[in-house]
Design a binder for these strands. Structure first.
Lengths: 334, 334
DNA sequence: CTGAAAGCGCTTACAG
DNA sequence: CTGAAAGCGCTTACAG
């Protein structure tokens, strides 16, 4: 069995209360006994039992994080940055990858709640489902017991805090630039109906309208599946004509690239392509992708800062929007 | 405050011992009182306090996982699969991304130990450093208190268990095939001196020797840095001539592809390239990469199965080797 | 089948 | 500055 506070007390010749005080850095201990206790602790390699402390404090200093899929680069980068920032505050986290189904997302949140984490971070607006009351009920319920932070999704609630990338303007800008550089038919490729995807679509449409171009329903194409499946779908859809593609995620842009290659179209001359997230992929493919940097790092770190403010009882903004940046590479000619 | 076992006891008209028994599924409770208690629990939405349970059991049913960098696709896929399998057993995990420095790896393991996780999984042989006694001392120490599982690294110890991909043979096969298909000068690109990288290099060298080709030190090139830096290094090294490249990781193969493009070399005709890990990248680039599938999924799930056996006191093999598979695509012509 | 009581390892008013 | 004692919410021999 590990050494306990009782062992240290006995060996130091003081009570357990005193040991506890030095462990917790209380000033109400004489220097002499503090030194003695510290020494004994070190000698015996004492570590306070975290379970007992948690029971006392009713907190494990642990944040629950959920994301749909940790092998998605965006989410992985988010978790990575959250972790770093969390450690700065001496917090740990439990991660639960939820998948994309409603039931499994609810299950993930429920389990994290049962673990009594101090707050919840949900990465990606997929946690909002369609945004219907029914789909977000579990979030409101979670928010009754602990603060809930959503990265890149928005839901209004007293105890829900959202940190968002400005997806609307990012896609507005991308689309606008394409048009201004002479493109007439811009295809919008998306892979989900999440809040974030909706924002992107709205930005795309606004740019079309502002440039007096029609919003053609056929040019908004939802694609789920692999890169190759996407290529094949585009190849089959001979009815579609387009000279530019904007996407909600880099993978879709890669699929468009595959399509261009299959059709022997030159990128960006015959077809310009814009990705989203500025992932590793963007630099690996050829030509390298112009892509929106969606500031994962900033969003993630900001979420942690706000959580800590929240835990400390400070007032925190319920919605924080961060601007992105269009990284120009070779798949566009603007 | 949340509802406790005392509340439920009072409301059910029984003692807390009985509540505890129904919570833990003890058979020593009459059907009638069980039903009653269950009902009261449900009505009051009772969840046992995990901290109190942990204190009793001296376990949180939680595994500590550490990896250098969760935004590395290999590690992310590993974590993802570990998690799924862990959940099947009702276990959770705490993740700590350690970075690549010795001190930070030791710190990560130490912190996880202090959290009293039930076992440790370390992803990647980078945790072994150079393999020197000094570099692995912290692992032996960790193994004194809990079982340590290493994915893709090998260290001999009573309480350390290793699940490995057969990197030696994978690179042997890749190199051998390149040679058999007519390649004379195979460049070996690696990015670390980890155990796993050493195995790969050994496989590469063995294949050369078995084919009576010289092992040329210049053709073993260590590269750290971005894909573009790699390309530039290769461009500068005009002294090197090679007609094939094998790598320890797909990113390096992508860099080689960039180099080929810059030199206007045709892949695979002028230069054949083999990646490693069969990551998302392999399918995104053009031509798509032949790559070794290093069985992350199998390794990860297997590690969990073995952990559970270990926790149950069963005897577990200290070294398990899984065979990989060479996925042929268009960057090679064999 | 059920309950009273001790114990898991800590923290923290309350006295002194 | 220090200690005795109660309490955090649970589990589990031990009696009955």
């Amino acid at each position: 069995m590990a050494v306990t506070i009782y062992d240290i007390a006995k060996l130091s010749g003081v009570s357990i209360a005193t040991i506890s005080r030095v462990v917790n850095g209380s000033p109400r201990v004489s220097e002499k006994t503090r030194a003695k206790v510290l020494e004994v602790m070190k000698e015996n390699n004492y570590t306070p039992n975290p379970f007992a402390r948690s029971l006392q404090f009713d907190s494990m200093r642990t944040i629950g994080i959920s994301c749909s899929d940790i092998s998605d680069e965006y989410m992985a980068r988010s978790v990575s940055n959250i972790e770093k920032k969390l450690h700065e505050y001496g917090y740990d986290y439990m991660l639960f990858c939820s998948g994309y189904e409603q039931a499994s997302k609810e299950y993930a949140v429920d389990l994290l709640l049962k673990k009594k984490v101090d707050a919840l971070i949900l990465i990606g607006s997929s946690f909002l489902g369609s945004g219907d009351d029914e789909d977000v009920a579990y979030l409101h319920k979670a928010a009754e017991s602990i603060p809930v932070f959503i990265i890149n999704g928005y839901l209004k609630d007293k105890n829900i805090y959202c940190v968002l990338h400005d997806d609307f303007n990012a896609l507005y800008e991308a689309t606008d630039r394409l048009i201004k550089s002479g493109r007439k038919k811009v295809l919008f490729l998306y892979d989900s109906e999440s809040y974030s995807a909706q924002q992107k679509m709205a930005g795309y449409e606004a740019a079309l309208r502002d440039n007096r171009l029609p919003v053609d329903g056929n040019l908004k194409l939802k694609i789920t599946g692999t890169i190759h499946e996407e290529r094949d779908i585009l190849l089959v859809r001979k009815d579609l004509t387009f000279d530019a593609v904007v996407t909600t995620v880099d993978e879709l842009a890669v699929g468009a690239l595959k399509y261009a290659k299959a059709r022997m179209l030159k990128v960006p001359e015959d077809i310009s392509i814009v990705g989203y997230n500025n992932s590793l992929l963007a630099c690996c493919v050829e030509p390298e992708l112009t892509s929106v940097d969606s500031s994962v790092k900033e969003l993630s770190k900001m979420a942690v800062v706000k959580i800590m403010e929240c835990i400390q009882g400070e007032k925190v903004a319920h919605k924080t929007v961060v601007k992105g940046q269009l990284i120009r590479r070779c798949s566009t000619d603007f």
